[in-house]
Every structure is written in structure tokens, then in C-alpha cells.
Nucleic acid binder design. Sequence first.
DNA 1: CAATAATCGAGACGGTACGTCTTGTCTTGGC
DNA 2: GCCAAGACAAGACGTACCGTCTCGATTATTG
Lengths: 198, 198, 198, 198
Amino acid sequence: MSVEEATGQPRPGRPRSEQSRSAVVRATSELLHEIGLRAMTTEQIATRSGASKATIYKWWPNKYAVAVDAFFSELQADSPDPDTGSARQDFTIWLRRLCHFYAGPSGAVFAQLVGEAQFDPEVATELRDGLVRSRRAVLETIWDRGVARGELRADVDRDVAIDLIIGPALYRLMTGRGGLDDAAADAMADTVIRGLSA
Amino acid sequence: MSVEEATGQPRPGRPRSEQSRSAVVRATSELLHEIGLRAMTTEQIATRSGASKATIYKWWPNKYAVAVDAFFSELQADSPDPDTGSARQDFTIWLRRLCHFYAGPSGAVFAQLVGEAQFDPEVATELRDGLVRSRRAVLETIWDRGVARGELRADVDRDVAIDLIIGPALYRLMTGRGGLDDAAADAMADTVIRGLSA
Amino acid sequence: MSVEEATGQPRPGRPRSEQSRSAVVRATSELLHEIGLRAMTTEQIATRSGASKATIYKWWPNKYAVAVDAFFSELQADSPDPDTGSARQDFTIWLRRLCHFYAGPSGAVFAQLVGEAQFDPEVATELRDGLVRSRRAVLETIWDRGVARGELRADVDRDVAIDLIIGPALYRLMTGRGGLDDAAADAMADTVIRGLSA
Amino acid sequence: MSVEEATGQPRPGRPRSEQSRSAVVRATSELLHEIGLRAMTTEQIATRSGASKATIYKWWPNKYAVAVDAFFSELQADSPDPDTGSARQDFTIWLRRLCHFYAGPSGAVFAQLVGEAQFDPEVATELRDGLVRSRRAVLETIWDRGVARGELRADVDRDVAIDLIIGPALYRLMTGRGGLDDAAADAMADTVIRGLSA
DNA sequence: CAATAATCGAGACGGTACGTCTTGTCTTGGC
DNA sequence: GCCAAGACAAGACGTACCGTCTCGATTATTG
């Protein structure tokens, strides 16, 4: 957090152009869907956004960091807690949404970012901090409620439980085998929850 | 498959140098572990192996194909079927081995290959054909035995069941969160199998 | 020439800061000697002088114009007319001074400015107006005195005569071959003046 | 001089493409005359010649080195020795040719190269070695003949004499004041030679 | 004594050239 | 026909500098 944000006091000099920032992010979003993370070049982002390469490199270390930002910027209202009163219901609804997301246009982008994270620790960190963590938080809440209600097994490690729910869907995404429709989500949820239920 | 392989008839001219081939594969293996898939260049493979770039490009389409070959070449005796008489046992042993593999030095290489597969359909295909398929075959056998024995639920889709076993481990590998030791493998196996058991 | 300078009437608003102007010129002088005309950046001038780039660009079109100003500012009382009564003496003394200047620290700066003038007509103009012209004026005076006195040939074009005196020294400077000490100056002066004498 | 040139033994690997080399030099020549040394970019040379930037940077350190090569390549049969029997004649003819060269299209290119040499010692060296030296050699021959013949003063330093002949013309070129036609050349030659004659 | 107007330092910005790097192809002579 | 060596075209990379701009702050004259 910069001094400015902390104190509300403007720093000297011309302030950063919000227009430029958002144009870069928007252009990157488009390019991610059109040609993908790897084929997209910094030059293209610059041309399409109207920003200069220097400006992009001033605020982001490379195109992958821009892509992470762009990816997050289009994830509004990210998978809220269903809270239906039944953990089984909650998990099922949540997993349907996840599979829907994976199967949609952003799914490929997400898969590419996870792929890139294998080579770039910074992408890995940002992805984990910005996305994985917030998703897991919802699942943790659902889990804790279920355990408190006596609906779920208290003797299963919470992290294990969550990995069992997310893992299979991610596996299907990353191996590109499909099987991410509602029926598949329900099948996976059903079986896992049976193992998790008290 | 080449004409030679099909007919057994030698083609005219100097035959392909096996020494050159294996040197390339070995050099690539080393580089994969030392600097990773992305940082490794075709030039480096050529220099280290003593082969020329032209030779490499003659036999492989690009460095990723070489990497896939190199990766497979070091996977000897890949996860055989434990066949203990208990599907629960078999799955647990098998998952331990998988986690051990993921946690070992080849795990990172595998993760990078899966990462690269998000950008390169050929890598995805080769990886699926060469590794994923053979692994799943073992699990399918275990599953079928368990179902036949009445140990496992016949009403669960086999593919779903297998994804539930592999998925969580791969999820941990790809998000780099660790948790791939024996205890973790056992915990995951236990919980999943409970959901899969009759 | 600004309105203020023309009319003596102060314009409204904050007047130009003399401190800022001289700091820029001084910083530029230092940089010219330390790293040279080409390596010096506008940013460096701004940082070292405490002025902002905007201020520099407000008063000068580019760094070369600043350099010309800075170069002139350190040329105080440049080569006065010796007027010894002998044109031969006058020319010899004058050429000694010129060579001394070329051989000194400002010589390299001057050479770079002449070099830059080959690319930038404005630099060429400013250099010619500010320096070359004033120097030639002194030589013209010496020449005219010598001709009037019957010491020098009246049938030689004055411009040719002056070029013969300055040219060889500049040639040595621009080709970086040295030979700019007093003895060399005397040798050049001697021979040329012999050609110019009646 | 490379090993190959010295021994006549071909080195391993694909030999340097003469076509590529000459295309680069030719394109550079054109660009030098069309837009000048400074405005010309490496990219333009690459585009126009059909070579890649990498190739250019492999064989030349930067565009200035290419420019020097290109400049030399168009100087065929550079100012031969007139050898008329009279040193006065020889010098006059030679200086006419030099002024003609300076006043022609290559003159501006040469001036820019000399200008650039003020910033880049390598350009200075190459220019001196490739051009200045060969020109001076001719003048030295003329001078020596004149002295042997008793036509020229033996007590004048040869280098000084040569600088007196070349210097004024270069001065006119570098200050852009014109005066490089035949009449001007003759006037300069006449006066200087008078100073140099026995 | 406020209002006006031009200055100033700081620094972000679009543009553009630079020189490096990697990829995949091509061209030698030797085996 | 295969191979090592290495030159080549293509083109993305990240850096540097240029000259312009937008801030808030400052400092004069003018009403």
C-alpha cells in the first residue's frame, strides 16, 4: 500500500492515469480470450490499449503480471457462499459453479495462468493469493458449518476435504478431458460428500 | 512410424545415430532438472549433447517434444498394479506412489509439462497418451476388481472415481501447496475410498 | 526576443527564475566535461541542477541548445585582438591561443558540438552565430590591418586567408591527431603567413 | 584477419552469406544518402536489405560501423596521384578533387561520419585508418617528389604541409559554409602552395 | 489584500530505437 | 543420407531516452 493510499495525501508529480491502467487491463482481457496468454505480446497490449510499453513495464514486471490483474478484474462477485442450510447442498451448488466457470471462456484463461505458474513463482503467488485463497475460504466456512451441525465428519482434515472437492474438477480442466457440466459436477460432489459425511 | 520400422527393410544412406539420440535425451533430462523446461533452450540441448540443432529439429518438432521423450525415458517401471486383494489397499498404495513421484524431483518436471500442455496441444496429447492413459489403466483395473468383488459401489462412474483419486494430488502439485507425503496420501485415500465403498 | 526584453515592461505572473537557469547551465557544463554531449541526458541535467525537465524544455528546445549555451557561458573574454603592430605576430599569437583552447578540456566539448552540428542545423546555426563569427571577426580585423599596412597580399580573398589559418587546427582537432601545442601552432602559422605575405 | 582468410582452409559451418553482407551495405548506403546517419535505424537497414537485425549485430557492433563500411564501399578509385611533374599542379588537382567530393552527395555523409567520430572512438579509428590515412599517403608522395625536385621547401614539416592543404577544405565542409567549387579550391591551393614553395 | 497568471519541481505518459535473445530453417564440408 | 557447425530471417523482449503532459505549490503583478 502506497503512502498516498495510507494517508490520503497526494504525492508530488503527475498522478498515475487511471484511464491508462484500465485500458491496459481491458486490452489484456480481450487478448487473453482471443489469442491466449502465450501468444499475446506486450507490444499488442500497448497498441490495443493506447498505452506505451514503457508505461506497462513501469507498473507490471511483465505481461504475465498484467494477465493476472486482467483475469481478476473480470471475476466480479466470485462464488459466494450458497448457505442453504445443508452442507451437501452448499458443496454441490458451489462445485457446479466452479465447473461452470472452468467450462466457460475464463476457464481456458485460468488453466493457462495455472500453467504459467509452473514456470513463474510470482504468477503462482499472485494466483494463490488472489484466487485460490478466497475460494477456499468459502469452502472452509461451508465445512465448518457442516461439522458444527454434525452433518460432516469432524475427524477429517479440513484441507483434505476441500482438496477432494476442488481437485477432481481442476484435474479435468488441466488435462483437458472435459466432463465439467452440471451432471458431472453433481456426480463428483455426490461421491465425495458421501466420503465426507458423518 | 517410419517405412523402415514397418517393413524391416533398411533404407539407403547412413542410419540414424542412436548415440546422438540418447545423448540428446540425456542432456535434456539433466537440463529439465537443473533449469526447468522453459529456461532450457534448444541451443543448450545441442551444446550439451554434442548434437547439432538441425539434428534435434530433424527428429523432434521442438524442445517440448524432446522434453516429453526425456521425461518418459526416466520413468522406468511406472506404477505397477499392487493387487493386494483389497481395492482399498491397492488405491492407498498407488496414491502413495503417485504422491511420492509428485513430491520428488520429477514432480516439478511433470508439473511444468502439464503447465506447458495448456499452451501446446501436442504436448497435451503426448502427455495424455504417454502417461495419463497408462496410469488410469491401472486404476481402472483396480476399480473393476473392487466392483466385481462387491467391495466398491457399482453405481459410481468409473471415470469419476479415478478422477477423485488422482485429482486432489494433482491439485496440490499444481498449486504448489505441498502436502504430498505418505500421511497426506493416506488421508486423501481414506476419505475418498469411504465415498467409493459399497 | 521576449516582450519583456523588448519593452522593459514586466509581464504578469511569476518571472523566470535566474537561479534555475544558471543551475541548469552549470550542471550542463559539468556533464559536458564529465561524460560528453551524447551520453548526457536531459534527465541528468534536471537531476543535477534541481530543475525539472519541463522547465528545461520550456526555455531550450533540447539538450543540445542547453549545451551550446553552457559552452558559451564558460568562454569568457574569448581570444581578443593581440594588435601587436605586426600581422604575423598577431596571427601567430591568435593561433597559439586557438590551439591551446582546442587542446584544453573545452576543446573536446567544442569538437562534439561541431560533430553534433552535422546532424542538427540549429546547433550548426547557433555555433556559427555564437562562436565562429566572433572569432572570424578578430581575424578579419587583423587581416585588414595587415593589408592596409602593405604587410599582407591584397590580392588574396580574406575569407580564404582566414580559412587557411583556422582550417588546419580544426582539422587536427576533428581527426583527433593531436599536434596542437605551441610549436605546432607556430609551425602552421609560419608557413601559412609566408603564403599570405606580400 | 580470420583463420580462414589466412590459411584458405574453410571453417566448419555455414559460411557467411556474401549476398546478405552486400545487401546490408547497399541498403545502408542508400539510407545514408536519403535520410542521413542519425535518422537511419538498424531496423530500417534490416528491412530494406532483407537481413535480420541479429545478422547485422553479429557482424557489426552498431549502425555506425555499418555506415563506415557502406561509405567506404562506394569510394572506388579514391583520389589517385595526378603526378603531372609539378607539385603545384598535383596539389591543385588533388584539392579540386577533394572539394568536389566534399561538395557532392558523399560529402554530407562524410561530414556526418566525422561528426559521429567525435562521440565514438571506434568510428574515429576506422575513419582514420580507412580514409584519412590513404589520402595523406598520396599527398606525402606528392610532397616528397616536390621536395626532391627542389620545388618545395625542405624545412617545412611534411605533416604540417599536408594539414595546410586538407584543413581549410574540411573546415568549410564541417562549418557548412560552402566555398568548395573549383575556383575556391584553386584559390586555397594557390595561397598555400605559395607558402610551401622554395 | 485578494485575484490572476505564469513559474516551478515532481514525475507519469506515448513514442520510438536500441541491442539481446530464442526459434526453427538452411547451407557448408566431412563421414 | 546423416551429422556438427554455425549462419540466417523472424520477431518478442525489456531498457533507455525524448519531449509532452498534468499535478500541486510558489511567487510575482494587478484590481
